[in-house]
């Protein structure tokens, strides 16, 4: 009787900025509510515990077709994922994701960034993307593109101080995200430029 309920299909992972979502196509059964359960398996489980699977309680008997698996994809190894459908007392066979998933394949986006000139001080406000994220910030004085400075910013609670600026000069900044656990960076953000306070008298 169980076999009548088809296994979920098109199981895949959408992964951006270390947030990994498992998705699948819905199983349609006329007049019935179908629910789904998800399990994962790391390389350790495949090699050392007879290919055992671990359930994800947050995605047990859920009505939707998306599951946030970020919390469990938490080691630098390849993971397998599977989903099955439930309808009443009936359960489908497991539908397995094609291939394995390694978190290093996540796509990283450049950070949202706001550059501030506060007097002679160059600062940057960066979005909080989570504890795994650092930011590589490049800055230079306009016209001196060959003398780029770099700073790694890990704390994003408020404006991070980059450097002091020469009076009246324009400074440009761009940044990329860096995730140490996968040793991977995003592309750079758009460049933003600001001008330092122009009080020339400071330099006499």
């Amino acid at each position: 009787e169980d076999a009548l309920l088809p296994a979920p299909q098109n199981i895949s992972i959408l992964s951006t900025n270390m947030k990994h979502f498992l998705t699948w196509s819905p199983v349609i059964v006329q007049g019935e509510t179908v629910r789904y359960s998800v399990e994962f398996q790391g390389e350790y489980e495949r090699e050392y515990t007879n290919e055992s699977w671990l359930p994800i309680p947050e995605c047990s008997l859920i009505p939707g077709t998306v599951c946030d698996i970020s919390e469990d994809i938490s080691a630098p190894v390849a993971y397998s994922l599977r989903v099955r459908a439930h309808s009443g007392a009936r359960r489908s066979p497991w539908g397995a994701m094609q291939g394995l998933f390694n978190r290093s394949t996540t796509s990283l986006t450049p950070p949202l960034m706001k550059v501030i000139a506060d007097g002679y001080h160059l600062l940057v406000e960066l979005e909080d993307m989570g504890p795994a994220f650092q930011f590589c910030v490049l800055y230079w004085k306009k016209g001196q593109e060959r003398r780029v400075q770099q700073k790694v910013v890990t704390e994003v609670r408020s404006a991070a101080h980059l450097d002091t600026m020469e009076a009246g000069a324009d400074y440009c900044v761009r940044a990329q995200t860096y995730v140490e656990v996968i040793n991977k960076s995003s592309s750079f953000s758009q460049t933003q430029c600001v001008r330092a306070q122009g009080d020339k008298s400071m330099w006499l």
Partner: peptide, 24 residues
């Protein structure tokens, strides 16, 4: 954390050594 009491703007520094000079 360095707060400018006039502008109410706060700056943030992460440093490993134990001294910090904020010029200008």
């Amino acid at each position: 954390s360095v707060l400018n009491k006039k502008t109410k703007k706060r700056w943030f520094f992460s440093i490993s050594n134990h001294t910090l000079v904020v010029p200008w």
